[in-house]
């Protein structure tokens, strides 16, 4: 049986921020974003630098929201979609915060929050940050075709989000600063389960949601097998970017194996964009999808007390252009974190 790691004390997400581009701003969650750049460039000369700048801005906003300075952060866990996680490296250059870079493809958001909370639980670190970015045009350039190349995408293809999510984490019994007085609840990581590699069986880079869906199935089934909780104890079971194809596979399989979970399912890739818009096809993808939906929508709802328990699984499709051309199928991974809203003792009614 797979193991769930229960943290000795919950690790609070004391502040979060979401930054995005034009399409994200015009989507149904646009109002929840802290900053939107309609040019997608964030004032930079290349798309790669734009992604880095977006991450830098997101982290600064998250720090400001909890009245923290970068010097208060003991460690940051960060990742993106670019080779060697270079967007994170360029974004964090000026902060001087000790860094752990993670590459989990689209599972990066959950992975980085999971690692940051594990590090905080070990004792010596008090405050950690997690940062995840993806940029549509930087990803297109690296994984697919030039940004101005004219092609037709199949209906199963997804749209890489231009979005960043930054999170500041702290031990729940030592909430860092005064910045969190304004909400009655604080979302916190209670426990987590590390994802397992699951073969997605296909080599089609334009159908990643389907390839990742089996990893989501695996993690959800394993979590509820190992845990004392039932799906009934959760308000939502949120997957990262399965899109419409992957979500429909997940629903179908769970309907047979764990029907209680089905009504709780929702997918970040299905909610970030207006699905009728041009070229979104099966939904949003990219690690910024789950990071920005968590920061702009799910965490704010938890802070207000509208959601109490959420199982959050960013789903990653592990592959490269070479691995696909060489005939290797896509591997999926879906780490899970259990977020729970805890009462904020510092809450001051205005």
């Amino acid at each position: 049986m797979r193991k769930i790691t229960v943290l000795p004390s919950p690790i609070a997400i004391v502040s979060s921020s979401a930054v995005g581009g034009k399409e994200e701003g015009e989507g149904p969650l646009g109002g929840g974003f802290d900053l939107i750049d309609p040019s997608d460039s964030f004032g930079q000369s290349t798309w790669e630098l734009s992604e880095a700048e977006m991450g830098r801005v997101a982290l600064n906003i998250a720090l400001r929201k909890c009245e923290c300075s970068h010097e208060d952060v003991d460690v940051i866990v960060a990742g993106d979609l670019q080779n060697q996680c270079v967007a994170s490296a360029l974004a964090l250059d000026s902060f001087g915060i000790p860094l752990i870079g993670v590459y989990g493809a689209c599972s990066t958001c959950t992975e980085s929050i999971l690692l940051a909370s594990a590090l905080l639980s070990m004792g010596s670190n008090q405050t950690a940050a997690a940062l995840t970015t993806s940029h549509n045009l930087a990803a297109e350039r690296q994984f697919r075709a030039p940004t101005e190349y004219g092609g037709q995408r199949p209906p199963s293809a997804q749209w890489t989000a231009t979005a960043a999510g930054a999170f500041i984490l702290s031990k729940a019994d030592k909430l860092v600063t005064n910045g969190n007085k304004s909400y009655p609840y604080v979302p916190a990581v209670k426990d987590f389960m590390i994802g397992r590699l699951i073969d997605g069986a296909i080599k089609d880079g334009a159908n990643m949601g389907a390839a990742m869906s089996f990893a989501a199935v695996d993690s959800i089934l394993a979590y509820f097998e190992a845990s004392e909780y039932s799906p009934k104890d959760f308000d939502l079971i949120v997957t990262g970017d399965l899109g419409s194809v992957g979500s429909s596979i997940l629903k179908d399989v769970l309907f047979e194996k764990l029907p209680l979970a089905v009504p709780k399912l929702t997918d970040c890739g299905l909610v970030l964009y207006d699905m009728k818009r041009k070229d979104v096809h099966s939904g949003a993808s990219g690690c910024g999808t789950s990071a920005s939906v968590l920061a702009s929508h799910i965490l704010p709802m938890m802070r207000k007390g509208e959601l109490s328990d959420v199982l959050f699984l960013s789903t990653g499709a592990l592959m490269s252009q070479s691995s696909l051309l060489q005939g290797n199928s896509i591997r999926g991974i879906a780490p899970a974190i259990h977020l729970s809203a805890i009462k904020n003792d510092n809450y001051e009614v205005k």
């Binding site: 037709q152 209906p155 073969d199 069986a201 296909i202 389907a210 390839a211 089996f214 194809v245 596979i249």
Partner: peptide
Amino acid sequence: KQGKKRIISEHSPHSR
């Protein structure tokens, strides 16, 4: 692998 492939093809929409 075969089972997964079958499920995927059942759920993947065709181009118009």
